[in-house]
Simulated assay, not measured.
Amino acid sequence: MPNYASTYRHFLSRAILWSQVATHLILPLFVFALALYANLQLRFVSQVTAGIAILAGFLFTLLVFIFQLRADVGQSTTMGVNVALKRLIDELFVTVGHAIIVSVTLVGWLMYLSTTMQNEGDPLPAAVSALICLATSHLIALLWTITKRTRVAYGELLH
Rank of each mutant, 00 (worst) to 15 (best):
I26G: 05
I54H: 07
G80E: 03
N82L: 07
F32D: 13
G51A: 04
L36W: 00
L62Q: 12
A15S: 04
G57F: 01
D122V: 11
T49M: 01
L113N: 06
V31Y: 11
A135K: 04
H98G: 04
G121P: 09
V107G: 01
L62T: 06
Y8W: 08
T7S: 05
T116S: 13
T23N: 12
F11P: 12
Q41A: 03
L42K: 08
P125D: 15
V94Q: 06
G57S: 10
E120V: 15
V96I: 12
L134C: 15
L106C: 03
D90F: 00
R43G: 06
G80S: 05
R87Y: 09
Q118L: 14
V21R: 01
I146T: 09
P28S: 02
I54N: 07
T23Q: 11
V102N: 05
I101Y: 06
S46C: 00
V102M: 07
T147F: 03
T23V: 00
L85K: 05
D122K: 08
V48N: 03
F60H: 13
E120G: 09
A141D: 04
D122T: 11
D122H: 05
G57Y: 01
S129R: 10
T136H: 10
L27T: 05
G57D: 08
F11C: 05
H98D: 06
L69T: 12
L25H: 05
S76A: 07
T105R: 05
I66K: 12
T116R: 12
Y8M: 14
T136D: 13
Q20S: 12
F60V: 15
L106D: 07
L62S: 11
H138A: 13
L113G: 02
V21W: 00
P123C: 00
L29V: 08
T105H: 03
L62V: 02
L29Y: 03
T23C: 04
I54M: 07
G80Y: 03
L139T: 02
R87L: 08
L63S: 11
I140K: 09
L27G: 04
V107C: 02
D122L: 10
V128M: 08
H24W: 02
L143W: 01
A38N: 05
Y37M: 14
L92C: 10
A141E: 04
H24C: 06
L143K: 07
A130G: 09
A153K: 02
L17I: 08
V102L: 15
G57P: 01
K86G: 14
R87T: 11
Y37L: 15
I140A: 15
I132G: 10
F58T: 12
A141C: 05
T77S: 11
